[in-house]
Amino acid sequence: MNRDYKPFIRVDHLKKYFPVAKNWRGKNSQYVKAVDDVSFSIDKGETLGLVGESGCGKSTTGRLLLHLLTPTSGSLFFDGQDLTQLSKQALWQKRREMQFIFQDPYAALNPRMTIQDSLHEPLKAYGEDKRTRSETIKTLIDAVGIPSQYLNRYPHEFSGGQLQRIGIARSLALKPKFVVADEPVAALDMSIQAQILNLMKELQHAFNYTYLFISHDLSVIDYMSDRIGVMYLGKMVELTDRDALYQEPLHPYTQALLSAIPIAEPQRSKNKIMLKGEIPSPVHPPSGCHFRTRCPFAKAICAEKEPEWVEMKKGHYVACHVVQEAHQ
């Protein structure tokens, strides 16, 4: 491979701690380690899926990538530039190339603005003149499948699926290179969900977008992504191609997650890996490997040492003592 190959987005040892308690001196004493030492990269035109249960830090990772949250430590390269080192002004210019698609389309649009005004907003902010704005919006609204005579309507006049289309149109108005989609279909019905997923794929195909696709639903992630990262309690536990993740998941958590998903296939064998207990509190995560309290294969070493992030096969990263031992 090319030696000075640079991925489009590279994240190194990214950490984000949120303070949750103060001691008697008024200093922060306890932290939620929402994202704890996560590293990965995304190539241009690729979709990286992030999957995990609630509180695993997937949304925080998405927000960190757009620098909507400032990381506690770690670096974040976007198109060769470290976002954490940029000045406010430079970051603002860079933001043009990065956009966000939100989970709840009702909350993402201002109820007192017509969708036309909402769509004008991002373009106005970056100083486009009125005529180019109107033209851009026309092509956009066409691309997402909303009739242009609806432009003067207000958000409450649309259904959830239509609103999500409008939300997507707005995110894409500035022709970004990188889009973070945080659970874009979680609030939608099944038949509408498929429409939105297909739309996002078509748009990616047409404009070569790079996506970070966040979802708790492994089947949606599997449909959308080229590579998939699995997160658990602020850590990434496994990262690989979608085929490898589905065919030979290595980490015990990934295996359990895959087997816990209800599959619409009644005669499938129902040998499930049932995880014991629940996700521990991220304020007091277990020592060593965070997953050890629920892991069916946990050993003594798992409580003592945090597993390292190791590339087991080409492009297949795992953080698990048991898997790494078995491979040696």
């Binding site: 259904s159 699926g161 239509q162 019905d189 099944m190 038949s191 509408i192 969900q193 498929a194 429409q195 997923l197 297909n198 492994l218 089947s219 949606v220 599997d222 449909y223 589905y246 065919q247 895959l258 998903i261 599959i263 619409a264």
Partner: peptide, 23 residues
């Protein structure tokens, strides 16, 4: 049939066929 076809299935590369329109 539409509901079943619009559901993503793990390991399947088939394009989803959504139900057009809305309820």
């Amino acid at each position: 049939k539409g509901l079943l076809a619009s559901m993503p299935k793990i390991g399947s590369r088939k394009k989803l066929i959504p139900i057009s329109g809305h309820p």
